[in-house]
Computed example of a mutant assay.
Amino acid sequence: MNQLGSKGSTSERKRHHFVSVTYLNAWVSGPAKKLHAYRSDDASKPLHIRPDEIAFENYYYSQTRPDGTRDNDSFEDLFGGVETHWPTVMKALKIETLDRAVLHRLYAMVTMMRTRVPAARNYNEEIMTLETRTGLKVFAEMGRLPEKLKRYENELDTVDIAIERQRTLGKMADDMRSFGDLTLRLGFEILVNDTGVDFITSDNPVAYFDPSDAGIRHPYINNEKVELYFPLSPTLALHGANRLRRFGQTPRFRTLSDMSKVRSINRITARFAYGLAFARDRSHDDLIARHSATSPVLDAKVVRKPKEIQYHIGHRFAARPELLKFRPEQCEGDLYEEDFNL
């Protein structure tokens, strides 16, 4: 029997894009309006594909309601409210005309493309897994591990733990607020690329880091100084930095004629890519493949103190984690506070 969608019919919004189709449309070319999509696990064989055929997962933003039915639309409607205005934003950028409404929609897209993507959601899932594992180890040491879990007592460092992915949706609001706080410290400019070398993009297109970190060893460092890049199209990119605040709240437009700078931005974009990179042509094959094995992932250290557990978390460039799929039928059964003698 089919579950009902939020509109009360058997019609479901099944295909949830984690990279906006209207955003990717800037990279299409030719009568077929296709782009080149590079899968990180097989970057040597890019797909020539339409934007609506890539960068999605079935029911990726769906939530289970209290009555057991599935809400496939709430997050899709939220994102759609931003995506609908994106063509208008791009038209304004091309004629270098920015008003308050355009800026609001521009920054809304940037925020969305930092927090809705698999790189962000998987990061939060990794944190939840770490917290669950650490908590179980503490309860084991206290002798309060539930009877259902005692057979794992000697393998809590290695036992498989799967997190219900829906839980990471609740972290998106916190991530949006945190990212918003970061952007308030930055000034912005629109880089107009006239070098003839396209900007590329990815499924994790918002990159920021400490500019004093030579080689960008640690991504998404939120230090006193921050550098941010977000490709808008093959010829436009948003650049943010603390030093740009002196130019005021409205981003200035700056022509970029230095081909080495464009390549540097593309290198950053390729490094921050998670599962997919995108380009209008095949001239970036080597660059994308060179950085396809690693992405920004969780970097964590747990510090145990007598009455406190401290989590020191951040990002590092490393191989992407293989997260376990949550399967309710394989769970140990419901656990409640009384199971932990709380």
Results as ranks from 00 to 15, higher is better:
residue 60 Y to F: 12
residue 57 E to H: 09
residue 58 N to F: 06
residue 52 D to W: 06
residue 59 Y to P: 01
residue 56 F to E: 03
residue 51 P to I: 05
residue 69 T to V: 06
residue 47 L to Y: 07
residue 64 T to S: 03
residue 39 R to E: 00
residue 48 H to E: 15
residue 70 R to Q: 13
residue 46 P to K: 14
residue 42 D to N: 14
residue 42 D to M: 04
residue 44 S to C: 03
residue 57 E to A: 09
residue 66 P to L: 13
residue 49 I to M: 03
residue 67 D to T: 11
residue 61 Y to Q: 02
residue 67 D to S: 06
residue 54 I to G: 00
residue 70 R to V: 12
residue 74 S to Q: 11
residue 41 D to F: 06
residue 66 P to R: 11
residue 41 D to P: 00
residue 37 A to V: 15
residue 38 Y to L: 00
residue 60 Y to K: 01
residue 56 F to L: 03
residue 69 T to M: 06
residue 53 E to W: 07
residue 43 A to N: 02
residue 49 I to K: 06
residue 39 R to P: 02
residue 67 D to I: 10
residue 65 R to V: 09
residue 46 P to E: 06
residue 41 D to I: 10
residue 54 I to P: 02
residue 71 D to G: 13
residue 51 P to A: 01
residue 51 P to L: 00
residue 63 Q to I: 09
residue 40 S to N: 08
residue 59 Y to K: 05
residue 43 A to F: 07
residue 72 N to M: 04
residue 44 S to N: 11
residue 41 D to N: 09
residue 61 Y to M: 02
residue 71 D to H: 13
residue 38 Y to Q: 00
residue 37 A to Y: 08
residue 69 T to S: 13
residue 68 G to D: 06
residue 62 S to H: 04
residue 58 N to S: 09
residue 66 P to A: 15
residue 38 Y to E: 00
residue 56 F to C: 05
residue 48 H to L: 09
residue 56 F to P: 02
residue 43 A to H: 11
residue 71 D to L: 13
residue 64 T to Y: 03
residue 52 D to N: 07
residue 74 S to V: 12
residue 40 S to K: 09
residue 43 A to D: 01
residue 58 N to D: 15
residue 63 Q to S: 13
residue 45 K to C: 10
residue 75 F to Y: 11
